[in-house]
Design a protein around this nucleic acid. Structure first.
Length: 590
RNA sequence: GGUCUGGUAGCUCAGUUGGUUAGAGUACAUGCCUGUCACGCAUGGAGUCGCGGGUUCGAGCCCCGUCCGGACCGCCA
C-alpha cells in the first residue's frame, strides 16, 4: 500500500496512529541528529521526522534524500512540540519508522514552491514541474470547479452538451483559420473552428432547444497574455428566446459561478448601450469599477482661438478627482509623453487644474479665461482640487485614447482593485464595422447576427452613415474592463439572411459556397434563436484577479504560439509532405 | 508589420566612464549542529557574459547584424 492518508489529511485526532504517506520531498531541514522533511502531494504538506537517537540507520538513510524525490514513509502520528499554524497539518508530524525511495529526482531547474525562482520561459519549458507547484495547481482546480459548476447550472436549466467537430471548413470572414491538410483529398484543407458557431445554429434547427459546450476554439492571430491560439469557450445557443432571455440566463450562470466558487453575491448587472460605452468610457468594454467618465467640450472650447481645439472633431476630457496638487508640471509632462507614445497615439494633452483656492491653472491658459475654465469645470462636475485632462482630435480615435488615459489614471489611483467585481452588459452593438483597408463593411459580430427590427428597413439604403448606424441584437458581458463573452440573436429568416449577405458584399454564389449548408437548413423550419459564448480561460483569470490566462491552462503556448516544452510547431518529414500533397516554399534557414 | 524591453553561475540578478583575476543571493556538494518549518554556521565547485562581426592597445559594457524571451500597437467577425 502506497498510502493510508494523503499529505493534507492528518490532524490532532490522528495522533498515535500508524500511517503511510507517499509524495514528493519538499524542503529538508537536517539538524545533524534529527532530520525534518516536508512531504508534499496535491493535498498538502506533512512534516516527517527522522530522529537519529531513536533510529540511527533510518536517520542516515534520510540524509540521502534530495528535493523532489518520490518517497513512501511509514510512521506514527505525533503531536508537535513546536506547532506550525500556517499549515493545516501543522499540529502534527510523523515519526518515521520506515522510508522507501520510490524514485529519485535530479535537482530541478527551479525550486518547486509558491514563490519560485524560475522565470517564465524556464517554467514553460519544464511545465510538468511548474504544474507541481501548489499555486499553479490551485488555478487548475479552480478551473475544474468552474467547469463542473457550469455543467451543473446549465444542465439543471435543461441544456444539452453536444460535441461539434474540430475538422471543419475554412471561411474568409473573421479571424485567420488554422488549417489541416487532407491526405485523402489532395490540395484540400480542413479548418479548425474559430467557434462552433454554425453547428450550434444547426442544432437549433434540429430542435435541441438549449445547447451548450465547453469547447476548444482556434484562432491564428497574434497572441497576448490574455489570448492563446487555442482557447476554451463556454458556448451556448437557445431557441425561441429573445435577447432578454439569453441575458438573464447567463447573468444567472455568472452569479451562480461567483457564488459557488468565490462565495460572492453579485447584484443585478447594469446595462449600457454600445454608443454610451464609447461616448462615456471610450471603449466597448468599459471598466466601471470607477467613474471618471468623459465630458465633451466642443460647445465650450471651440471657437475661442485655440487652433488645436478648433481643428478637432471632438474635444473631450476626464476629471481626475483630488489630483491637482499631486500632479506637478513634471508629472503632467510625463503624462503627456505617456499619451503621445505610439501605442496611444495622442498628439498632446491639455490639462486644467482647479486649484483649492478656486483659481485655474492650465496648459491652455493663453487661449482661455478663468470664466471659460469655470464653464468647463461645471461640465466636468469638477470640484476644487480636481485635475481635468483633455484630449482632442478625430472622434473615434480621441475617445479610444482618452479611454486608455482613463484606465491609466484609474490604475494610478488604485481604483482598479482586482477583487472588486463589476460586471456589465454592453448591448445594441452595431451590425456592421467599416474596414479602412478593405474599404468595405464587415459584420461586427458575425454574418448571422440579426439587425434590430426597427433597423431592418434601413439595411439596404446604401448610405454609409446609415449603415454605420444600423444596430444589432448583439451583446457582450464585460467584467472589470475585460470582455468575458458575447453573443447575438441570429437571423432565422432566409430572406433576411440574404439581405444581410448582400449588405456584407457577398454575392449569392459566394454565400452559397461558404454557408450553403446553413442557408439550406434555414429553409426547413429554423426556429428563432440566439446564443452567447464566454471565454472560459478569461473568466477563470478575471475571477482570480489576474490578467494572464496562461496559468489557467495546463500546457499553454508562448507569445510566438510555440509550445516550448514539446517544441511545437516543428518541421515535418518530406514523406509526410508528399503524402499530404504539400510542398514547402520557404524555410527559414537555421 | 511596428514600438519598447531583456539575454551575465543550475536559478534570480548586480556589474560605474571601455581598464587587473566578472560578483551577490539562492541552489548544489561536503562537514558541524536535537525542534526546524525561508533552520543556522563553515568550507567550495560552479561562467562560451545568447551568437557572429566590427571599433579599440584593451569590449560583459560602444557600433552593426542575428537568434531567443517578455510587454504593447496593428490584428483577434
Amino acid at each position: 500500500m502506497y498510502r493510508t492518508h494523503h499529505c493534507g489529511a492528518l490532524r490532532i485526532a490522528h495522533v498515535g496512529q500508524e500511517v503511510t504517506l507517499s509524495g514528493w520531498t519538499d524542503a529538508i531541514r537536517d539538524f545533524g541528529a534529527m532530520n525534518f522533511l516536508d512531504l508534499r502531494d496535491r493535498y498538502g504538506i506533512t512534516q516527517v521526522v527522522f530522529a537519529g537517537a531513536d533510529n540511527a540507520d533510518l536517520y542516515q538513510q534520510s540524509r540521502e534524500l534530495g528535493r523532489e524525490f518520490v518517497i513512501r514513509v511509514t510512521g506514527i502520528v505525533r503531536e508537535r512540540s513546536n506547532k506550525n499554524p500556517n499549515r493545516a497539518t501543522g499540529e502534527v508530524e510523523i515519526v518515521a519508522n520506515a522510508l522507501e525511495i520510490l524514485n529519485r529526482s535530479k535537482t530541478p531547474p527551479f525550486t518547486i514552491k509558491d514563490d519560485t525562482d524560475g522565470g517564465d520561459e524556464l517554467r514553460m519549458k519544464y511545465r510538468y514541474l511548474d504544474l507541481r507547484r501548489t499555486i499553479i495547481q490551485k488555478n487548475l482546480f479552480f478551473r475544474s470547479k468552474l467547469a463542473i459548476e457550469i455543467r451543473n447550472y446549465l444542465s439543471q436549466q435543461d441544456f444539452i452538451e453536444v460535441e461539434t467537430p474540430n475538422l471543419i471548413k475554412s471561411t474568409p470572414e473573421g479571424a485567420r483559420d488554422f488549417v489541416v491538410p487532407s491526405r485523402m483529398n489532395p490540395g484540400q484543407f480542413y479548418a479548425l473552428p474559430q467557434s462552433p458557431q454554425t453547428f450550434k445554429q444547426l442544432l437549433m434547427v434540429s430542435g435541441f432547444d438549449k445547447y451548450f459546450q465547453i469547447v476548444k476554439c482556434f484562432r491564428d492571430e497574434d497572441l497576448r497574455s490574455d489570448r492563446q491560439p487555442e482557447f476554451t469557450q463556454i458556448d451556448c445557443e437557445m431557441s425561441f428566446v429573445t435577447q432578454e432571455d439569453i441575458l438573464n440566463t447567463f447573468e444567472g450562470l455568472t452569479k451562480h459561478l461567483f457564488k459557488k466558487a468565490l462565495k460572492i453575491d453579485l447584484p443585478t448587472f447594469p446595462r449600457m448601450t454600445y454608443d454610451e460605452a464609447l461616448q462615456k468610457y471610450g471603449s466597448d468594454k468599459p471598466d466601471i469599477r470607477f467613474e471618471m467618465t468623459f465630458s465633451e467640450l466642443n460647445d465650450l472650447a471651440k471657437g475661442k482661438g485655440f487652433p488645436v481645439f478648433d481643428a478637432a472633431e471632438l474635444v473631450v476630457g476626464i476629471c481626475v478627482p483630488k489630483q491637482a496638487a499631486n500632479y506637478s508640471n513634471k508629472h503632467l509632462n510625463e503624462l503627456t509623453e505617456w499619451v503621445k507614445r505610439p501605442q496611444i497615439g495622442a498628439k498632446g494633452l491639455i490639462w486644467v487644474k482647479y486649484e483649492n483656492d478656486g483659481s485655474f491653472k492650465s496648459s491652455a491658459s493663453k487661449f482661455y479665461k478663468n470664466s471659460d475654465f469655470e464653464t468647463w469645470a461645471h461640465r466636468f462636475g469638477a470640484s476644487k482640487g480636481d485635475l481635468m485632462l483633455i484630449l482632442s482630435g478625430e472622434t473615434d480615435k480621441v475617445r479610444k485614447q482618452l479611454g486608455e488615459l482613463r484606465l491609466e489614471m484609474g490604475f494610478r489611483l488604485g481604483l482598479r482593485q482586482p477583487f472588486d467585481f463589476k460586471p456589465l452588459w454592453v448591448v445594441d452593438f452595431p451590425l456592421l464595422e467599416w474596414d479602412e483597408d478593405a474599404q468595405r463593411f464587415f459584420a461586427m459580430h458575425h454574418p448571422f447576427t440579426s439587425p434590430k427590427k426597427a433597423d431592418i428597413p434601413k439595411m439596404l439604403s446604401g448610405d454609409n452613415a446609415q449603415m454605420k448606424a444600423l444596430r444589432a441584437d448583439a451583446y457582450d458581458l464585460v467584467l472589470n474592463g475585460v470582455e468575458i463573452g458575447g453573443g447575438s440573436i441570429r437571423i432565422h429568416d432566409r430572406a433576411l439572411q440574404s439581405k444581410n449577405f448582400k449588405l456584407l458584399g457577398f454575392t449569392p454564389e459566394q454565400a452559397e459556397a461558404q454557408f450553403g449548408f446553413l442557408l439550406g437548413a434555414f429553409e426547413y423550419g429554423a426556429p428563432p434563436h440566439g446564443g452567447i459564448a464566454f471565454g472560459f480561460d478569461r473568466l477563470c483569470s478575471v475571477m482570480s484577479g489576474v490578467h494572464t490566462i496562461r496559468d489557467f491552462i495546463a500546457f499553454p503556448k508562448n507569445n510566438q504560439g510555440r509550445d516550448i516544452m514539446i517544441d511545437a510547431p516543428s518541421y515535418i518529414d518530406d514523406s509526410q509532405l508528399t503524402e499530404l500533397s504539400l510542398e514547402v516554399k520557404a524555410v527559414k534557414t537555421i
